[in-house]
């Protein structure tokens, strides 16, 4: 990691959607960077803006109905300054994405092998035969049994876990520098989830690609992340190393989320649930969006946006109570 310029950097990203109920402020000024080979987890509950953030990094948001501001730089290029043709080159080749639902990525009418080969041919000037060879290699790499036979399979002929692996193979077809993974194991059974997470971890280590893993599950973050960013109402409320954020969370929402997650040792104890519900994104308060649910709320919380405080251990916390480095 001698290259000081990050592979990806996001500064002041805002995304708002026009909805019949008003303007929904889905992402509200987030900043983060991703180094080469790093795994960053965006952790948050549903509606906190994780998927919108990922789609913004691929420039996949509907241009008509969304308002995007801020800056996204990928491998030195200003993503929102590029012509659409260049963005298409980037997708798949530099940045690639996997989803919770593999059928979002896989085409039901083509075989797995044909889809992977087609992606390779589109991005790289190689022969069809060469692309076919690479497709087989990829299926082996994602540990699909009888890979050769599976090249000829249609997505619906595969089990859930195999489809997930096939989608990962497709995403990795052109050796992207960044993999964006949107809850890729959420719909899977525990045993299969663990298989897919270990696979992703191994592929990441082998290829050195950087990963942004979106999840609502603390366990997925603990199993995969180098760094964790906790999102709430479209903001990153805490960001630091996985150990910092998961073992000694500082932001009241992060603390609350961990306290309400059931784990061993809580039996017969009352769960420390966060009261209330997340805010309406069409009517965010002027102050901290978590304040209405926060046990440590005080006057300052409702006045304006909480400051981003950089603590002594270098983590960043969006809270008036956080203690800045001296």
């Amino acid at each position: 990691m001698s290259d000081p310029t990050p592979l990806l950097s996001v500064t002041g990203l805002n995304v708002a959607f026009q909805t019949p109920r008003g303007t929904a402020q889905a992402v509200n000024g987030i900043d983060f960077t991703l180094a080469r080979g790093e795994v960053l987890c965006l952790l948050g509950e549903s509606g906190s803006g994780k998927s919108v953030t990922l789609r913004a990094l691929m420039r996949l948001l509907p241009e008509q109905r969304s308002r995007i501001s801020g800056r996204v730089t990928i491998a030195g290029e200003d993503l929102y300054g590029l012509p659409e043709r260049r963005v298409e080159d980037l997708r798949g080749k530099v940045v690639s994405m996997v989803f919770q639902e593999p059928m979002l990525a896989l085409d039901p009418v083509y075989t797995i092998g044909a889809q992977i080969a087609e992606t390779i041919v589109r991005h790289e000037r190689v022969s069809k035969a060469e692309a076919g060879r690479r497709a087989l290699e990829l299926l082996e790499k994602v540990q699909i049994p009888s890979a050769k036979r599976r090249l000829e399979a249609y997505p619906h002929e595969m089990s859930g876990g195999m489809r997930q692996r096939a989608m990962i193979a497709l995403a990795l077809a052109c050796n992207p520098a960044i993999l964006l993974a949107d809850e890729p194991t959420t719909a899977l059974d525990a045993t299969v989830q663990m298989q897919v997470l270990l696979l992703l971890r191994r592929l990441q280590a082998e290829t050195g690609m950087a990963v942004i893993m979106v999840t609502h599950d603390i366990g997925v973050a603990a199993e995969t992340a180098d760094r964790v960013a906790v999102m709430y109402a479209g903001r990153i409320v805490e960001q630091g190393t996985a150990a910092q954020v998961l073992k000694t969370p500082q932001h009241p929402y992060a603390t609350g989320l961990f306290a309400s997650t059931v784990h061993a040792g809580l039996k017969d104890r009352r769960l420390d649930a966060i009261p209330g519900a997340p805010p309406d994104l069409t009517a965010l308060p002027p102050g901290c969006a978590f304040a209405p649910r926060c046990a440590r709320r005080r006057e300052a919380c409702d006045v304006g946006q909480p400051p981003k405080i950089r603590m002594a251990d270098a983590r960043e916390v969006l809270c008036v109570d956080a203690v800045a480095a001296g």
């Binding site: 603390i218 603990a222 199993e223 998961l246 784990h263």
Partner: peptide, 12 residues
């Protein structure tokens, strides 16, 4: 044993 760890320093 397929339960996720909640400790990044003790992964499966």
């Amino acid at each position: 044993s397929a339960r996720l760890s909640s400790d990044p320093e003790r992964r499966t």
